[in-house]
Design a protein around this nucleic acid. Structure first.
Lengths: 216, 216, 216, 216
DNA sequence: GATGAATGAGGGTTCATTCAT
DNA sequence: GATGAATGAACCCTCATTCAT
């Protein structure tokens, strides 16, 4: 005889604010203590509501985590791929912009949070992970692939680049998120320099002399 | 009246075996359930000892985690840098070997475990993280740097490569560990292909035509 | 600053209807879930009023139970005794009619409810139980006693029947209520047959031959 | 990864005592407060164990109730039917003894408890109710039926008694249990007198003169 | 040393009741 | 008066840790 919670869309303005406050508070406490160690009591106090109020908006702690991820973190990631597909300028330019966007996203606090929660929760969050995989990872890879193809078409990139898994280009930036979680207080990363270095490397290669492109 | 646990060095042979069994069991259970969700009871059962026995060897659950990381995971990582410093063959060869070792390590189950535990544990595991940073990350970077320098010396690598942060070369492989944790069941990674692709890319670069090395 | 609820008598017509709706709803939910498990929310929904409205009419959940019992169940029981005191016809007829009324009442849903609530509610419902005892049990017994006496007077019943506790005649039917609560889904009772059997037995007795009534 | 509780049979002597203590305590608290209102904390305190210890022996509160019923109450009821089947003496004697046993059982504290718990829990305890129905009710009825048949055979009882549902003989006594629960403090029952009255009534009937048995 | 029964603080969740609108 | 969102005390159950045997 459990009444379903009202849909998010049907909430009044003040209820939306209230819901937002809770999600914000949860984000903060989850980040401070980790999901498991986070106490509903603390979240309630942080949101300045009673503990019971949390349950007016979210049925369980884990649903609150899902809300945190879906409403706070995912949206900022959705944009990632979209931004850089304008196809104006050279493929090199395009790639550079995409890489910068990816790298900055990865280095953001939100990404660190998301990663932490997905990694920590393991088996519980399949749904979230699947969501992320489908929406962010896959599309990110495709956007990169499109740019690579484009570069080959225009003659900017080497022909055989086509055989390369684009994952090596985007995936590379994950380490910045990991770094942020683990080593942030030991050594700060200079993201901009790292991206530049990565681009420089990836575009020009390490080798001083290179055998002629076989397609040339 | 709490007696201090005997130092690890003073354990008898059979005690060492017992301690090892416990650590092995803990590794297994931590990996299966995650650190927070792992129950001491399950670890005891897995190790085929009584629950109380765990506490003869480790004061708390978190100390057991530290032991798991220190005795099971770190050593396999320590080797990483050392292996590839023989300086036999070309710098390209050397780098290729180092990258392969790094990539395989990152893709190993142990690395996935380590990463999961370090990432999950919020502020608790500073000690472990520091340890890892000092022993693995730093030295890994230095080993790569050494190889890069060597390649520049021999003329294999471009001069200006010296300015590049070596982190972009090793860090890149962290995504394989993350991938393993998150997406293993959604899509399998072909590590060897990825390493080859990465090497190909990093060595040759993307560009079809490259301006001559200014130092040449 | 708690205002006392207005007395039942001072309620407007529409308020009375509202109050009745609530009591009806409560009866339904109490029966479906039991008193403890019944939720005020469910009662409010069933009555199609807001939860707060319940508290305009009843201070606590337990007072609502009392109202359910007093306004819904007790009245139907009050009639029991009254019906059969018209003293028309033989004592046997009279007794038969009383027994039938008692048995049917006991087998009614209302009685099952009442019994359930009184039995379940531990020490809380002393007031209700006392009420029931005084109004129903005692008067029921007296009505039966009157009929027995009447039968002895008319010579229909044996003299020594006077010494028998009338409780054995009415009480007997309680089992139908209990049965209804417990075993209704295991085996249905044929109330009419049972009453007939009981009457047959009680009137004629089991013995094939009976020693002559000593008073005869 | 939940270890099943050890079977009751494999418990050590002191564990059995401990288990018994808990069941006893639960019986007491359940009776004092009713099942729903009973607090595990109170049961633990009553049993002089820690709250957690309860859960070493019983997985949930409801399992504890089942244990209370199965180990404390049912056994005393099981005997009911068995006792009176020796078939020594007249059918009248036999019936009298059976009725006395039934009546005393019904008036016992255990029966009051059992009834309360079965009635209160309603839908939850189908298993227990079914158990009780099969083991006690059904067999009780059959034992009575056997005696009735026996009495007809020996010529003690009237032929047409065979058509009577034996339930009216045993069921009749349920009211003593109900009475005990509800009215014990308002008026004490004299069980022995009630049984005698009931027997007298049932054997001899109410009627002063009876038409001759048609089968005679 | 080894055992595992016992402990009890702690946390997620429920729901009768309140009160601002 | 009516509403229903908000409250927070209460309670079942978990599990890391202890300690008597």
């Amino acid at each position: 005889m459990k009444l379903p919670r009202p849909e998010t869309e049907t909430l009044s303005r003040s209820q939306k604010r209230r819901r937002d406050d809770i999600v914000q508070a949860a984000l903060k406490i989850f980040d401070r203590d980790g999901f498991e160690a986070a106490k509903m009591t603390d979240i309630a106090r942080e949101a300045e509501v009673a503990k019971g109020t949390l349950y007016l908006y979210f049925d369980t702690k884990i649903e609150l985590l899902e809300a945190v991820i879906l409403t706070e973190i995912m949206p900022t990631l959705q944009k990632m791929g979209e931004v850089a597909q304008s196809k104006t300028g050279s493929a090199t330019d395009l790639l550079a912009r995409q890489m910068r966007i990816a790298a900055r996203r990865m280095a953001s606090n939100e990404m660190a949070s998301l990663l932490r929660h997905m990694v920590s929760g393991s088996s519980q969050h399949r749904r979230i992970i699947k969501l992320y995989y489908d929406n962010v990872v896959q599309s990110g890879i495709e956007h990169i692939k499109a740019t690579l193809d484009y570069g080959v078409e225009t003659g900017e990139f080497r022909q055989n680049i086509k055989d390369i898994d684009p994952l090596v280009l985007v995936g590379a930036h994950i380490y910045t998120a990991v770094w942020k979680i683990l080593f942030a207080d030991l050594e700060e990363l200079d993201i901009e320099k790292l991206v530049d270095d990565h681009l420089e490397l990836v575009l020009g290669g390490l080798l001083a002399y290179r055998q002629q492109d076989p397609t040339a």
